[in-house]
Nucleic acid binder design. Sequence first.
DNA 1: GTCCGGGACG
DNA 2: CGTCCCGGAC
Length: 420
Amino acid sequence: MPTLFSQPDSSLNSFASRLLDWFAENGRHDLPWQQHQTDTPNPYIVWLSEVMLQQTQVTTVLPYFARFMESFPTVQDLAAAEWDLVAEHWAGLGYYARARNLHKGAKQLVEVIDETGEFPQTLAGWEAISGVGPSTAGAIMAMGLHHYGVICDGNVKRVLTRWAAIDGDITKSATTKDLWALAERLTPTENSGLFAQAMMDMGATLCTRSKPACLLCPLKEDCLAHAQGRETDYPVKAKKQPKPSKFSDALLIESADSEILWLQRPDNGIWGGLWSLPLQFIEKIDVKTSSKATGKTDAKKPASDDKPTNIPSDVRSHEKVYETEFTTAEQIINEWLTKNKLAAQSVSKSLLDDAPIKHSLTHFHWYLTPQKLTVDAAQILELNEKLAAAEIDFKWLTEQTAQDSLGLPRAMEKIIELLQ
DNA sequence: GTCCGGGACG
DNA sequence: CGTCCCGGAC
């Protein structure tokens, strides 16, 4: 029977003990969510930390984790909390769907506990919790319950593609399947939690993306990438598309007593569930068709026609495309501004002409220009009525109060910082 | 400045 | 398979 793996059985069989020996001697054992030194691990701690660590580095997570544990020491506390409080705790960590799923997941977990008296005890039970996928579920099984569990996250994939010289694109499902099979083959039935922690620690501290410390690695003897001096050729990944640029005005609609209008964003889409200034989309420019996609001058130029060609040209109007960039609340505000012939003043123009705030998201760059607009009491009343009628969540708060009490994305923090 | 990594979900 | 965010590496 041919082996599924590029490594011989002897290497596959000794992998775990070499890694565990290294971890015992040189690994990190002082992270606040580590549960391997206790006989009675706390699944809540592991679940919370794993969700936070899903796409964020340890050093970034540390202060957020501490604050969550202080405010929500148990899953019941988290489940009972108001969403806005959870959002405020998560603000700045990014990928806000994680926070919404975490909050939803806490409620689901409390339901399970109320029914069974304990946290889910199976892989399927954990995967049924919002925000918990295969790798997080495996991590919780292994480290949060000390049951058997396998992980195959980014760290593991980097270690394994190097060690076994796996040339497949790791974004493809076939390669993912191979990597999971290899991770399962290597994970020991006893101590799978220690093994999972060791793999993640090794990936994070030794087998790093750019300058792996191969001399210190317990797997260097049979690492196939190391043998060829090709460590940094792995993992193989398809090249990314260049990001298009988008431009928006961020409206500071201000009352006489310096209170500003803030809107809660819809759950789906960018910054879902967090609070933001009203944004007015200006233009978008595809970097592939524009040599310079930076600066205000370019923002005023018409965007290239990158819309699908199967749509009739009369429907492919400029207007149509850019209205889709507004939330409902922003459309209401935009219509109201137009009706009242109110024009915003660029705050940053004199101060910072060609450097409005730049914020990079997953698949586009966003250039934000703060625009100030003062409204009187009657106008505020009218605007409030329109927003309330559409069941929009909004608040009038000073910049300082907003910063202290709302979950704001980093881009909003940048704007406030700029104005101070 | 630009590039890059990263897990889950619809 | 596209969408979601930010910080750290370079």
